[in-house]
Design a protein around this nucleic acid. Structure first.
Lengths: 343, 343
DNA sequence: ACTTAGCACTCAAACGTATGGAGTGCTAAA
DNA sequence: TTTAGCACTCCATACGTTTGAGTGCTAAGT
């Protein structure tokens, strides 16, 4: 059932006020607003119905109303609209970041997001498994030591040292490298396993002593698939009146710090900005908190997220616009730093 | 002036009690102790003098006494002694860590320290500039792309992609690699600069177009000299009554999160365990907090620290023993994972 | 000269009570 | 359907009182 225009108007006014003041809103306050030309009694009746419908809550009998998670959801989906042009805030600072390693860069971006929004930020590095393998090298160091080098299309090289048993000849290793590059380049990293590697080795008639190399190579390539999650500005949470109770603050911070990985909604296909309100976060510890995520891309290959966490009472309109704008800037920065480079 | 034996005994009792209870200690409580066979009045007189000497403080007139930073310092240096064998706690979990990248490993160790001690932990990766260069490789990818590979004695390889302008021949690059390995191996990474690199290049009569490679190489080698600092378990701070005032908790967390780098006392030569009490930390924000650091080594080459932060009231004896034991375990783990490997 | 019992004094914390005020829900009239 | 009026609820705040742990000082005891 669709809400009446007047109910929407009242709900929007309540949520808007509550977001600013963190105080329950009463009927009189609302009646004083110029755009609400009804008496406080009428508004009271409407509020009572909005409460029955689940959009509002009462902290106690003689207090005003506050929005419920459902109320926020409606607000976010239909009422709040999108603000104009504050999106560009902070992009200058972003563009000045000179960090060349992707994970460090994302961590720095997290700090910027915290400073910009004054909220705790959650950022994740992209999962790069869809990247294509460009080249694969095994550099000999001494009789039993080699450095494995994986060069993906994105140019973010990774390398690792590996030790074999004596008896592996350099010639064999070189041949292996050649065969591997012939057969495995151009395919996604995610489809390269140590098993597949071994099939290639066997087909070329090469020694089983090269097995350890396969193992390490698989480990190295797997590292492209792991994602890191950074949490920055934890202390920002404490500035909100909803966490004046230390117990609550501690519970939330505990949860956030414990295993940040679970904060990232990988399963969901995020388009643009995603808003998760209170219980929608799934976890009990987050039932009084909201998160806003924006996704960013690294070429066509992977995506990561930048986001914030705070109490359910947040300025969703402003913050999601800021995050969206920031993610846009980050896309440009990444393209410049990691993709253009090897054109 | 040396304190009388009795004063020491009383001071030790007060600090011991206060560490456990976080409540100001009164003369009666102390008199009830079996080892203090004086009347409460005598103890009162002694306490009054200990206050005049700066070892004790009074929250207000009609409360008991609490230790001052100076009091803690005396306690730590002379009174507390060293506990027996709780050092080994947590080493099993430590030994089960299978992380191969040093920085990720240290981060995991930070989490362990937090879980073990229930304190916020601060850990730093070692500075590796004293590592010797073992080998240097430039792997060609295409006409203008190369991967730089730096192999230090410790086996923690790092690599990076570099793009040159067209006109640099592969032969030249190969020759450069050869010359570099002839002249630069076996020396500390810290002494390899892009200038030195260029001198070698010029001496060999090679093209100035190789300049960009020098620049990137310097950047890559510099990365061995930067240290990362990890903060884990921020929420643990909130469990202490001294941070029941959210303002204080926020101020401290703000400071800790802002630039964790400054937390590490690099200038100081830490031997074993270092304890910093309140104002000794230098910063104003830390004047009500203490830190305990233990250093760990990566071979002879570098050192990092693992430590904890908390209110000045902490069980210095137990915690420093735990940290020392943990650092010992970490030394073994590092030796096993990073040093033995390339023997 | 040191120790100790005794006592007046201080002050924070805890508790109970009263008061004010914002807000609601209901009723009845417009 | 809207609105004025009113009784009722309940939190927040302030205030006064009490409680009790602790101190500092004095004077007596060893």
């Amino acid at each position: 059932m669709e809400l009446s225009e007047r109910k929407k108007q009242i709900l929007k006014a309540i949520i808007g006020d509550y977001i600013r003041t963190a105080e329950p809103i009463g009927s009189k306050t609302l009646a004083a607003r110029p755009e609400l030309s009804f008496s406080s009694a009428t508004i009271r009746n409407e509020m009572s119905e909005l409460e029955d419908l689940g959009y509002l809550e009462k902290p106690h009998t003689s207090a005003g109303r506050i929005p419920s998670p459902l109320g926020y959801r409606l607000y976010v989906d239909e009422l709040m609209g999108t603000p104009d042009q504050l999106e560009e805030l902070g992009t200058d600072q972003l563009m000045q970041l000179k960090v060349r390693e992707l994970d460090r860069l994302i961590q720095e971006v997290g700090k910027l997001v915290t400073n910009l929004t004054e909220y705790t930020s959650v950022t994740s590095t992209p999962v790069l498994q869809r990247t294509l393998l460009r080249q694969f090298e095994i550099v000999p160091i001494d009789q039993t030591s080699f450095v494995l080098v994986v060069v993906p299309e994105t140019g973010s090289v990774r390398s690792k040292m590996v030790h074999t048993v004596a008896g592996v000849s350099k010639d064999e290793v070189e041949l292996l490298t050649y065969v591997l590059n012939q057969t495995l380049t151009g395919i996604p990293l995610s489809s390269i396993t140590s098993a597949r590697f071994d099939i290639v080795r066997r087909a070329a008639g090469l020694s089983a002593l090269l097995g350890p190399i396969a193992e390490y190579m698989a480990e190295l390539i797997e590292s492209f698939g792991t994602q890191q999650v950074f949490l920055e500005g934890e202390s920002k949470l404490l500035r909100f009146p909803e966490y004046r109770d230390i117990q609550k603050a501690q519970a939330l911070l505990d949860y956030l710090g414990e295993d940040s990985g679970k904060l990232i909604p990988l399963h969901k296909k995020i388009d643009g900005v995603q808003i998760m309100i209170g219980p929608e976060n799934g976890s009990n510890a987050l039932s009084n908190a909201s998160m806003i995520y924006a996704k960013y891309d690294i070429g066509e290959i992977g995506q990561g997220v930048i986001g914030i966490v705070g109490p359910t009472r947040m300025d969703y309109a402003k913050l999601s616009a800021q995050l969206a704008g920031f993610a846009k800037g980050l896309n440009r920065l990444i393209a410049k730093t990691f993709l253009d480079e090897h054109k």
